[in-house]
Design a protein around this nucleic acid. Structure first.
Length: 621
RNA sequence: GCCACCGUAGCUCAGCAGGUAGAGCAGCUGAUUUGUAAUCAGCUGGUCGGGGGUUCGAAUCCCUUCGGUGGCUCCA
């Protein structure tokens, strides 16, 4: 035991792990001498959580000291920090955060030990009633066990399962980040509380790095870059959550769309265009009015009949399928569409391009026979990864969602298709997690989250089996046996929505798009007026060879023009001076600042074309 | 939708103990013709998000509306 105590000190451990549970370090002497104990330090996921959770207690302590009338509620650790929710008559201000931080420093300096006390529920309720902490009483009343644990530190007692760090002095670096409203227990029915977010690290450097990362995230914010690079905008006279694609953004979108369409044709899809509205009866039949009406807009009256803006494309694709009698021979039928849909999102959740009210899905529906489902899912998976990789997303997290409580179709059908999804993932050798019961009511699904250059995760792709629509619309094919069969319908989107994907791309590349996507690929810059003729010749040559060129021939200094081009994140600047004009050569400057020489404009074009064709996400060396 | 904060020139922001708007960048004009991240000078530009109110007087205070930002399933 003494051995462990020594180790604890040396490792600066925050807690201990015994079997599957975590305990306070001070509990070490209560353990049997042969107990298997491992040390938890702030380097581990569990350790840092304990560390941050303890920081949230210290924050609650500080708040109670500064504002005694505030009632405490809960304060867990989160993925990147912690928060604590308070019921306060007066909302907190940014200035309050500073004084709370100061108070926390004091508490940390005192190095108060965290002391655990186990009491009966009755005792605990009596204690918190006395303290007028109604939320704590409510929580205790819902705890099933007979006893609950309390933690005290410097006179501040909080209900807590623990464990905690041994004493407040363990906290080396923390920062309070923001104030927000949050409903008690996350329900809109309940009172709105004041939440304070913060984070803590075991070393000052780590906190500094984290704050730097937050700065970097801010710099990459697609809303900011969207303005700076003139990619898109929104306008309150048009409406919230509705996007205007500016020429630069539209050009990138066109490039993405061209790529998408070409690859879909190669992969055996057929392209569709369908209307933006349809009669309300269609949406009754599809079940959207029952299951999705919260996200749909009010109907519009056309000649006395109600029409709805479409929130999804599926019903239209189904009618294309149904427009003829299908034979088992023509399956699988794969319909793809860049389909623009409109969905009601609550005003508070709208966010730049990432959460909007009108967007274009890269949608497709595959109608296939049961014996084709494995192959189809596998191909979709492979196709998805190919598309995502082209945009520079190499890391994923994959989730398989299974049957929820409320579902349509038969358990056998669910089993069959869930297994098909599983087999495809395994055949492709992709690690995945199962999200039990998280499938949509109409079928199981695979969700793919991509990790961007800052390791942030974004949900883009989804592959879903749909039992609902084939049944509701009675879609059939004529089998080999000359009988009617219901095909299996697979619904999938790879980028999800073009708006959202564009937002993710902007942040992923920090606005510096790879050559094939960049709205302006080459900027031709002259040193002096006498170089204009040669510059125009080069620009014209590149332009007629499908390179997107811009010229800067004015009387500004070269350094100014280069700055202009760099700020716009143009991949290549071509600088034309006496040297180039005399020898008919090209000097190109990369965004990174590196210079390259080419002995002719043809060789420069060839160089560019290689990069464009490869859709390289990295600049060539 | 809810809570908090914010909304001043195309952009970034200053002005806010109420006295009727200002800077930098951008734009325009002129000068400069320059070799790798900002040449100089002048000029233009705002019914201070919209509407209403308090006041002799409102960008500044109040109400309302529209938009934006951070959050609102990480459960002692």
């Amino acid at each position: 035991m003494d051995d462990i105590v020594k180790k604890v000190k040396k490792a600066n451990a925050v807690a201990l792990k015994v079997g599957n549970s975590y305990i306070d370090i001070s509990a070490i002497y209560e353990l049997a001498s042969d107990a298997e104990v491992s040390l938890i330090t702030a380097d581990s996921k569990e350790g840092i959580e304990i560390y941050r959770h303890s920081t949230s207690h210290i924050m609650a302590h500080a708040v109670k000291e500064l504002f005694p009338s505030v009632k405490v509620t809960i304060g867990p650790a989160t993925e990147e920090g912690f928060y604590y929710d308070f019921d306060s008559e007066r909302p907190f201000t940014p200035e309050d955060l500073l004084s709370i931080e100061e108070k926390m420093q004091e508490i940390i300096k005192k190095n108060n030990p965290f002391i655990r006390k186990v009491v009966s529920k009755k005792e605990a309720i009596a204690f918190f009633s006395e303290q007028k902490e109604a939320y704590k009483v409510e929580i205790i009343n819902e705890i099933k066990a007979e006893e609950v644990s309390l933690y005290e530190e410097g006179g501040f007692v909080d209900l807590c399962r623990g464990p905690h760090i041994p004493s407040t002095g363990y906290i080396q670096a923390f920062k309070l980040l923001s104030i927000a409203g949050a409903y008690w227990r996350g329900s809109e029915e309940n009172k709105m509380l004041q939440r304070i977010y913060g984070t803590a690290f075991k070393a000052k450097d780590e906190l500094k790095d984290y704050l730097k990362l937050l700065e970097e995230v801010k710099k990459r914010d697609h809303r900011r870059l969207g303005k700076e690079l003139d990619l898109f905008s929104m306008n309150d006279e048009i409406g919230a959550g509705l996007i205007l694609w500016h020429p630069n953004g539209a050009l990138i979108r066109k490039t993405i769309e061209d790529f998408w369409r070409n690859e879909h044709l190669k992969a055996g899809y057929q392209l569709l265009y369908t209307p933006h509205i349809a009669k309300i009866d269609l949406w009754k039949k599809s079940g959207h009015l029952d299951f999705y009406s919260e996200n749909m807009y009010s109907p519009m009256d056309i000649d006395g009949i109600d029409y709805e803006l479409k929130p999804m494309n599926c019903p239209f694709h189904i009618f294309v399928y149904k427009n003829a009698i299908r034979s088992y021979r023509e399956l699988p039928v794969r319909y793809a569409e860049l389909g623009t849909v409109y969905r009601y999102e609550r005003s508070g959740v709208l966010h730049g391009l990432l959460r909007v009210r009108g967007f274009t899905q890269d949608d497709a529906h595959i109608f296939c026979r049961e014996d084709q489902i494995d192959n189809e899912v596998f191909n979709v998976l492979e196709f998805t990864l190919f598309i995502l990789q082209t945009f520079g997303f190499e890391k994923y997290e994959i989730f398989l969602s299974t049957r929820p409580e409320k579902y349509v179709g038969t358990p056998e059908g669910w089993e069959l298709s869930t297994n098909a999804l599983k087999r495809a993932l395994e055949l492709k050798g992709l690690p995945y997690e199962i999200d039990p019961g998280e499938g949509v009511f109409y079928g199981p699904k695979i969700d793919i989250k991509v990790k961007d250059s800052l390791s942030r995760k974004w949900q883009c792709s989804t592959i879903q089996v749909d039992f609902n629509n084939p049944e509701r619309f009675g879609i059939m094919y004529r089998g080999k046996d000359d009988k009617e069969h219901m095909p299996i319908m697979i619904h999938r989107a790879l980028m999800g929505s073009l708006e959202r994907f564009f937002g993710i791309l902007i942040e992923h590349y920090a606005g510096a798009f790879p050559l094939w996507l960049a709205p302006v690929q080459v900027s031709v810059i002259t040193v002096a007026e006498r170089h204009m003729e040669y510059a125009l010749k080069i620009a014209g040559f590149l332009r007629t060879n499908n390179i997107r060129v811009e010229t800067d021939l004015g009387g500004d200094k070269v350094s100014y023009k280069i700055r202009q081009s760099t700020v716009k994140k143009v991949p290549y600047s071509v600088i034309i001076g006496d040297k180039e004009t005399e020898n008919n050569t090209i000097t190109a400057r990369k965004r990174s600042g590196e210079n390259m020489g080419f002995d002719s404009m043809e060789s420069f074009l060839e160089y560019l074309n290689i990069e464009v064709t490869k859709k390289s996400t990295k600049e060539q060396v």
